[in-house]
């Protein structure tokens, strides 16, 4: 069965970059269930498409990543969430993990770092 992935980032360039990396042969087969540009969109897609894995930006309009992680932990507790953010300080990472995130990838990232982080999230 394919892993179901939702990508959340206010940058379409970053959403596309992560989506393209799903085809990397080191990763298990992945079904992209949605692309969201903010936390509100992410919640709506997550409720209907039930992803197993979510990559989550933090600084976004409407609903930010932290608030979205908190809501997702309530409504979709089985989903594993990896924060992908430019906010690379330790406090931010620890706060995101305390809200329900399972991993953290700092921007800017290389393709190698992204694949390694996705592998860890899906392991």
């Amino acid at each position: 069965m394919k892993a179901r992935l939702l990508i959340v980032d206010d940058s379409m360039v970053i959403r596309n970059l992560i989506a393209r990396q799903m085809l990397d042969e080191r990763l298990p087969p992945i079904d992209l269930v949605g692309l969201a540009g903010d936390g509100e969109q992410a919640l709506a897609i997550a409720m209907s498409r039930k992803p197993d894995f979510i990559t989550m930006d933090l600084t976004m309009p409407n609903m930010d990543g932290e608030a979205c992680i908190e809501r997702l932990a309530e409504v979709l507790p089985g989903a594993r969430i990896m924060v992908v953010s430019a906010l690379s300080d330790k406090t931010t990472a620890l706060r995101a993990i305390s809200k329900g995130a399972h991993g953290f990838l700092h921007k800017p990232f290389s393709e190698e770092q992204l694949v390694a982080a996705l592998l860890e999230l899906m392991s």
Binding site: T59, P61, A86, L87, D89, T91, T92, H106, K107
Partner: peptide
């Protein structure tokens, strides 16, 4: 992409200045 680059550079600055540095989208 120009906004995202500015965002990444601000994020790096936050690591230096501390979490009090609040960053807009």
């Amino acid at each position: 992409v120009v906004g995202e680059i500015a965002n990444m550079m601000s994020g790096r600055a936050r690591r230096h200045f501390g979490e009090e540095l609040a960053i807009s989208p």
